[in-house]
Design a protein around this nucleic acid. Structure first.
Lengths: 330, 330
DNA sequence: CTGAAAGCGCTTACAG
DNA sequence: CTGAAAGCGCTTACAG
């Protein structure tokens, strides 16, 4: 492989000049610049990135830590972040933390080792609570989960508002006895639960709300209990896509019909929510936009480290479908 | 940050010894090894990866090029590859080529620049045809798509067999007039089409099969035409998840019912296929296993570059659901 | 505007 | 088994 020294020799300039031309830093006379560019093209020279990174200590790499890329929410975000990154000549290092604080810590350490120029991070509740972005040598942008100490930029859904929207919608459709199931491990679940309780109060209703480990089986079990109880809720509101699946299975297993026996609403406009019968009413999150915004915050933070911390709240969109059809007599 | 020189000084050894201890290469007396390890721990020393990569020209990074990580098939593969990689102390660089040969070439070049130690690649048909793995300085393992010149290891589904399984199943359920829709851009689509035509012949049937650009809208359009034709097929076989969605929408739009008016079978056990009513009969691909196998092939290839090229064919699993229920009279 | 030269932090022959 | 030293391929003050 040709090295910068070979290019310099062939172009009759110093390596410093080749470097300046290639990086666009420092002034270079037009003729020299052209000569260098020609030579680079003729020789098919490609700079050694490891050398460049060692010398400049800039890696053009960002880290993306999510719980699981197989969650469609994170899949979309990951795609958005990657699109933006490659567009900027940057690389993305994707890590799956599986909601495990140990893995989160491990990957954060990895990011330090990799000397990344920034991290986009979706933390568990515990980590979000004690997280101090200032201890890291790179900027951190939080996604999806509220951040505690206010030391990091963040882009999140307005979870409380979104949940209120769902409750108000249910109420307007005639539902009164509403139960909510929320993920216990995430700040998102907590925020949605708060919005839920508040919305119930504002509507003069009393409902039940519970925190449950966020997986399909746990949701299914909990919802089965609810459906068997004597004062079965008229409507269920669940805080994530996994619960939506669990709820669907529980309701079908109980031989109940949606929405006549029980209405069902939730979060995340995953492809399948429109394909089941009836379609499920959900809050669609602007996932791609969340990823893009996170990247923008990160890039801006690199430009202006001293700028005050920003939390961007994006609005969700209510998608009305059959699962919350208006209650008709009989 | 502490450098290896500081550790060496503090431990009273040379940097060479520290390096040997840390990399596990070369012999080091037990006492020295322990002293170094202690010092490293005490100082919290972390090696500079850029320097290590420059000097050793080993990056511990592999590239993964798929068409779109949002396709659940690739989402699962990406997760498997990442799990395996981090387990091995390696990194993954994920690229989305969007079935665009230009992006494929771009990312392959990027991989050279990054000096990755291997690439896992799901190429478009055209690229697969002209691809010569020997021109790259790293091993390449193909996934999902058949490879042409036989210069690269590959792990693929046995597409022909899987398609024959689907056809045989339809036939056993009583369906005779069967139409197939296959993706035109991928080798996968072609292989499945071959299996389809062969299976029809073996069953003494004549059906139609068409190649269509692999997206929901195109599939939907094509299937709408089929459904409107005077000799409407009794069953549809489609070659990917996008077509499955398009087919479902087309069938519903035509006011037809599955499977009484038309049966529907396809590929990929995406979550939603079991949730629609009726559930869709599909060939489930061992996606996670495909990713894991690809990584294994890559690691083994690094060990033994001269070993003959291997193509691993994994079997799909027929998941029978309501969409191909047995045809009953009336 | 340009070049000579130092040096980023490691690894790895080489010599002993 | 260990160390002194070269050098991986760049970038970047520094001097002119």
């Amino acid at each position: 492989m040709a090295r910068i020294k070979d290019v310099a020799l062939a172009a009759g300039v110093s390596t410093a000049t080749v470097s300046r031309v290639l990086s666009g830093s420092g002034p270079v006379r037009k003729e020299l610049r052209e000569k260098v560019l020609e030579t680079v093209a003729a020789m098919g020279y490609r700079p050694n990135l490891a050398a460049r990174r060692l010398r400049s200590s800039r890696t053009q790499t960002i880290g993306l830590i999510v719980s699981d890329v197989r969650n469609p929410f994170f899949t979309n975000i990951s795609r958005a972040v990657e699109d933006m990154a490659y567009q900027q000549g940057m690389r993305v290092m994707l890590c799956n933390s599986d909601e495990d604080p140990k893995k989160e810590a491990l990957y954060l350490e990895l990011m330090e080792d990799e000397n990344v120029c920034g991290v986009i991070f979706s933390p568990t509740l515990g980590t979000a609570r004690r997280f101090d972005a200032t201890v890291y040598p790179f900027p951190v942008v939080m996604i999806d989960r509220p951040v505690a100490a206010g030391t990091a930029d963040a882009v999140i859904l307005d979870n409380q508002a979104a949940t209120r929207t769902l409750v108000d919608h249910l109420v307007s459709q005639g539902y009164r006895r509403i139960s909510g199931i929320f993920g216990s491990a995430s700040g998102t679940g907590l925020a949605r639960r708060e919005g839920f309780n508040e919305a119930l109060k504002q509507n003069g209703l009393t409902g039940t709300s519970q925190l449950v480990t966020a997986n399909v089986a746990a949701g299914q079990l909990e919802i089965s209990h609810l459906l068997e109880s004597p004062d079965r809720p008229e409507a269920l509101l669940v805080s994530n896509g996994l619960f939506l699946l669990g709820a669907l299975q529980a309701i079908r297993a109980a031989g109940l019909s949606i929405p006549n026996d029980v209405a069902l609403v939730g979060f995340d406009d995953d492809p399948w929510t429109s394909l089941v019968e009836p379609g499920l009413t959900v809050i669609a999150q602007p996932t791609y936009e969340i990823g893009r915004t996170a990247m923008e915050l990160l890039l801006q933070r690199r430009e202006s480290p001293e700028r005050p911390v920003r939390v961007v709240e994006l609005a969700g969109t209510l998608i009305k479908r059959g699962s919350s059809r208006i209650l008709t007599a009989g």
